[in-house]
């Protein structure tokens, strides 16, 4: 019973922390703050879902933040330099990120590089590309201009569910940011792919037992490439959402996000041994990090401490992962 609901413990922890912060800080349990959490961490949750794919195949994508920066800068350029309308520039940017993800996959499968080396190298290479194509640097006058394209701007809105349902007369409900709706779409799609298609099974098979996958005729390489591509796709979606939010892109967009996304995925039960993971887990993991960090901010803890905490939480999560895997090993009772 417990095994089937591996996110159950996580959910309990989530609710407990939520209750804790609601009780100890005044503004935590308020509509504006919940809006803040939702709009601040929805895109992190999307990235965590993306990061889950390579981890599921025993890999890792350290370049995810640089990839977000790349997508954002391409979108900015297409809008400000080439004056492309949003209906064209948005798909182009997302495709570019997916291709960048594909490059990671090719480095890992074709050149047989260790995932972390390959993606550490592309972390630098993608960030370098961001600087190289930055319209803000090529045309300094663009640096202060914002993106005004209606297609892009329309992606930054709020859905006032209080008004929509008529409940606003009784209680102030948080409005749902568009990025949260995007997260829901990504989550549903990813869940279907992971659980209802052969591709999803192949991802888990390749990560869970590559030898068995090979024997069963599953293409290990192709599956790995798809995993990195999916991760890049999520980075592209987030890049668009971030440009819509800030109406601009900087050379630093997305810096340091790899850490949080890996932490969220590992907390969400995507084990580094590969082969298992859900979509709900990384999303819960991302929001768990979100409420901890925002809750602590409300309690007056500095952003630097948050950085320390993120690291500590990641350490705790891998340690927990190690303990459970040790327990499984001793339960199955074999010696080498």
């Amino acid at each position: 019973m417990f095994k089937r609901h591996q996110n159950f413990a996580l959910l309990i922890l989530f609710l407990a922390l939520f209750a804790f912060f609601s009780f100890f800080t005044r503004r935590f349990f308020s509509a504006p703050n919940i809006e803040d959490i939702l709009s601040g961490y929805s895109f992190m949750a999307i990235l965590a879902v993306g990061q889950a794919f390579p981890i599921m195949t025993r890999g890792l994508d350290l370049s995810i933040g640089s990839n977000v920066g790349l997508g954002a800068m391409i979108l900015f350029d297409l809008d400000k330099v080439f004056h492309l309308p949003g209906w064209a520039s948005i798909p182009i940017s997302v495709t570019a990120c997916a291709l960048a993800g594909c490059v990671n996959g090719l480095l890992v499968t074709q050149l047989k590089l260790q995932p972390f080396v390959a993606t550490l190298a592309t972390l630098a290479a993608f960030r370098g590309t961001v600087y190289a194509v930055s319209g803000r640097q090529l045309y300094p006058e663009l640096a202060t201009q914002s993106v005004k394209d209606p297609w892009i701007r329309s992606l930054e809105g709020f859905l006032d569910i209080g008004h929509l349902t008529g409940l606003s007369r009784f209680v102030r409900l948080p409005s749902l940011p568009f990025s949260f709706l995007a997260l829901l779409v990504v989550a549903v799609l990813a869940h279907v792919v992971l659980n209802r298609t052969r591709l999803g099974l192949n991802l888990k098979t390749v990560g869970g037992n590559p030898e068995a996958a090979h024997l069963a005729g599953v293409s290990v390489r192709r599956t790995q490439i798809v995993a990195y591509l999916a991760c890049g796709l999520c980075a592209g979606i987030v890049a668009v959402l971030l440009v819509a939010r800030f109406t601009t892109a900087t050379e630093a967009t997305g810096t340091g996000m790899e850490l949080t996304t890996i932490a969220a995925a590992v907390i969400g039960g995507v084990t580094l041994r590969g082969g298992s993971g859900t979509v709900a887990g990384p999303i819960l993991g991302a929001f768990l990090l979100g409420i901890i960090l925002i809750g602590l901010t409300l309690m007056g803890i500095s952003q630097f401490t948050q950085q320390i905490l993120t690291g500590a939480i990641l350490l705790g999560a891998v340690y927990y992962d190690r303990l459970t895997s040790d327990r499984q090993k001793s339960a199955s009772g074999g010696v080498a």
């Binding site: 972390f116 850490l259 320390i308 350490l315």
Partner: peptide
């Protein structure tokens, strides 16, 4: 953390990267 707790070096040092940077900033 790597030798005695047998955690993967890449994750340990990635986490420590954040912890040390945060400490430095404090």
């Amino acid at each position: 953390a790597v030798a005695y707790l047998r955690l993967p070096p890449i994750i340990v040092t990635l986490a420590m990267l954040s912890i040390v940077r945060g400490t430095a900033l404090i």
